[in-house]
């Protein structure tokens, strides 16, 4: 079974690009346009990895991360945060509790590698 990746991004075109890329890399992709939609999708079906934008309308990446970490059923799902501000400029990066933070524009091949690494870690940890 292909690992499930949930893509959370409010820019429809970037969302599409991520879906095309990650699908081509062998992941089963689901998409959401903001944190709220993402949480709803995660309740329906638990993803193996979440790739989330930081600044989004309705519910942003900060809130999404917090809600995931607070949810017993979801707390251990790895979250990769994509940020349009450089790593050192992210406010509250420490408290974000993301598994990885990648600055936009990111390298998609690097993203795929990171997802694979996190999946391996999760498999070992579980």
């Amino acid at each position: 079974m292909a690992p499930k990746v949930l893509i959370v991004e409010d820019e429809p075109e970037l969302r599409t690009a991520l879906r095309v890329r990650l699908s081509a890399s062998g992941f089963a992709c689901e998409t959401a346009g903001n944190g709220k939609e993402a949480l709803a999708a995660m309740q329906r079906s638990r993803p193996d990895v979440v790739v989330a934008d930081l600044l989004m309308p309705v519910m942003d990446g900060y809130a999404l991360c917090r809600r995931i970490r607070e949810d017993q059923g979801l707390a251990d799902v790895p979250v990769i945060v994509l940020s349009a501000v450089p790593r050192h400029a992210i406010e509250g990066a420490e408290s974000l509790q993301a598994s990885r933070i990648m600055a936009k524009p990111f390298d998609a091949r690097e993203l795929v590698k990171v997802i694979q690494a996190l999946l391996r870690e999760a498999a070992l940890g579980g």
Partner: peptide, 10 residues
Amino acid sequence: RTPLATIKEF
């Protein structure tokens, strides 16, 4: 950065 990410992705 956001449009740049989209361009880079495609």
